[in-house]
Design a protein around this nucleic acid. Sequence first.
DNA 1: ACCTGAACACCGTTCAAGT
DNA 2: ACCTGAACACCGTTCAAGT
Lengths: 196, 196
Amino acid sequence: MPTPDRTSLPAIVEAGCDLLELGGPSRVTMQAVAERVGVRAPSLYKRVRDRDALLQLVADATVDALRARVAASDGSLPGLARAYRAFAHARPEGFRLMYAIGTSTEALERASVPVLRAARELVGADRALDEARLVTAWVTGFVSMELAGAFRLGGDVDAAFDYGLARLSAGIAPHDVDGQPPASSRPGHTLPAHGS
Amino acid sequence: MPTPDRTSLPAIVEAGCDLLELGGPSRVTMQAVAERVGVRAPSLYKRVRDRDALLQLVADATVDALRARVAASDGSLPGLARAYRAFAHARPEGFRLMYAIGTSTEALERASVPVLRAARELVGADRALDEARLVTAWVTGFVSMELAGAFRLGGDVDAAFDYGLARLSAGIAPHDVDGQPPASSRPGHTLPAHGS
DNA sequence: ACCTGAACACCGTTCAAGT
DNA sequence: ACCTGAACACCGTTCAAGT
């Protein structure tokens, strides 16, 4: 005889996200998550394979929240980059987790669409993928280092961010980079409809 | 009556590094480390406060190994960046750990000296710090994304790396970036002898 | 002074028994 | 069908007792 469910997968993932920001990965224990959703630890295994799978779901949910935040920006390169950085500041543990364990392909694809569009605007379709990777790599590294405390001594970190943004926002026409054609315009290469 | 030591702190840290690369942080347990250096787990607490402190030492040792590898490059910006990336490929778990838990200030300072020098060469002393941060952020983010599997679909990742390198190697003269003076040349700011 | 076995608390996970 | 207490294996950490 079925009894009404006392919890749900979304509730479990949300509890995982909350605990993660509260005290890092070590705080998201099966027991703590279970208590937060009003159930005992063994019950979680009805909805989630194990703790690693739960962390994976938390990482995927974080990527999707990042996608939503970035998509809500004005779509310009500085707007995208600032939204990305603001998200990382708001949810540092989630951000770290994304790159600590990776995320699903689909989530990443969707998240990088706006960056690809901005990159195409800036340098053209041929170089859009390479350019998108340049920009996302820079923002990712910048906030990773920020969060890790790698910008500890001196200098104005916000100003350093603006500097990088200005450097990368300066678009380039073909063969401004060097004597060779850009990677993405090599024979046989077309821009796939996917992520950075 | 003192008895000869059966292990040492360096041996413990090395065992931690080895186990880390072998199976990620979850594999560096006190028991596994102890077994590797030939003692029982409780003995480790004579040299290390707890497991977190051990992981911190492993992270610091990794930064120093990175510093040595980068310092052995030709000192050019592409040479530095390629050495950095090669290190991350060789010791992915150690690289991840560096940014997962941060590292000591001194280790970071020493590691970033060559990058600062190359940056000064490229854009001048005023902008050296900002430029060094731009470059290190980019490489860091690039390999982080690589290791996290964020470059999953299509495109040539090596070519994307060369593209970013070419973009960033193109130095800029003053006021090429935008209408404002660079962040590092604002009043009261001088280039500190420290890290990126 | 360093090392160890024994012990304790805590966590992930399984499973038979409940409803 | 979902939930639970009990149980097991494993890990971090402490400590009294050895040498």
